[in-house]
Design a protein around this nucleic acid. Structure first.
Lengths: 150, 150
DNA sequence: CCTACTTCCTTGACTCATTCAAGGGCGAGC
DNA sequence: GCTCGCCCTTGAATGAGTCAAGGAAGTAGG
């Protein structure tokens, strides 16, 4: 877990000014992996009092551009953010409730993640998303409570 | 290429009524791989005259649910549809202009597409998206004309 | 410590893809 | 050709995300 001091150092390490909203959002993102923007707004307000949603949007963009957060957005979902960066891990998404879990790259050194024919594209990243059902929805799978699609 | 007759047979083969909007949208999706909804609305109108956007949305959902189309939605993009289904192919997305190209599954029989630790999820699909730059944007890469993100 | 500059946050309005709802229209089987 | 049920039209609403202008606060230099 990251402390307030760690968050401030992280911000300085990427030449970003240390402000209360940024620290609060960074801590919130560390606490709740794969949280969506609305959740992070709420968490940031718990941590520091009032913040505008616009400020959180700006902060999330700044942190993402700086490489402190990674933005993920499975089809039919709102944007979500995670603080686990730098390793090549992927995600499993539940089709019923939309929950997300981390999955380490299956084979050791990202094979099959270089396309056989790249159609002339310069590829810099391979993103893998697994789709299925989470344990909770699998057990109570008769009537899904909430469809993940928009 | 699919003809009008082919489209009608496809619709009947999945027990869908044959209507002018459905035929027009199905043909449009075959003609323009990875087209977004707005493009398909325009193409459908070229093919059959006036159609409401709501009708196209309904048709796209029906065709997707029936398995005649596949809906893809890279992060930060609107929904796009493709008629190439049934094979395990993936996509390269240009970070600059958002264009999409097909990529055959790199290694023969979808290895590394079974997660090493599935976190208890029942996985039924693995989706791979490659990110990079298309040939056009790579050559004129000084000032990207249009950012794919929303 | 204090000032000045630059960046950041607040407020409020707005965009636009997508969905909801109600009613009339049309395809398909009899 | 008629009836039933699904489909399309119209019109409005939703909601994540963005734009824009002005005031506030962090940081560097004196």
């Amino acid at each position: 877990m990251t402390t307030r001091t760690d968050a401030e150092e992280l911000l300085r390490s990427v030449s970003l000014r240390v402000t209360r909203p940024r620290v609060a959002v960074l801590l919130a993102a560390h606490d709740r992996p794969h949280a969506d923007t609305e959740t992070l707004i709420g968490a940031a307000r718990e941590g520091m009092g009032a913040v505008s949603h616009q400020a959180v949007y700006d902060v999330l963009r700044a942190l993402t551009d700086a490489g402190l957060l990674r933005r993920i957005q499975p089809a039919g979902s709102v944007a979500r953010y995670e603080a686990r960066i730098g390793d090549n891990h992927h995600h499993v998404v539940c089709r019923s409730c939309g929950s997300i879990a981390d999955v380490d790259c299956a084979v050791g050194h990202t094979p099959c993640l270089t396309p056989s024919d790249d159609a002339g594209f310069t590829v810099d990243e391979a993103e893998v998303t697994f789709w299925g059902q989470c344990p909770d929805c699998a057990t109570s799978s008769d009537i899904p409570h909430h469809d993940a699609r928009q």
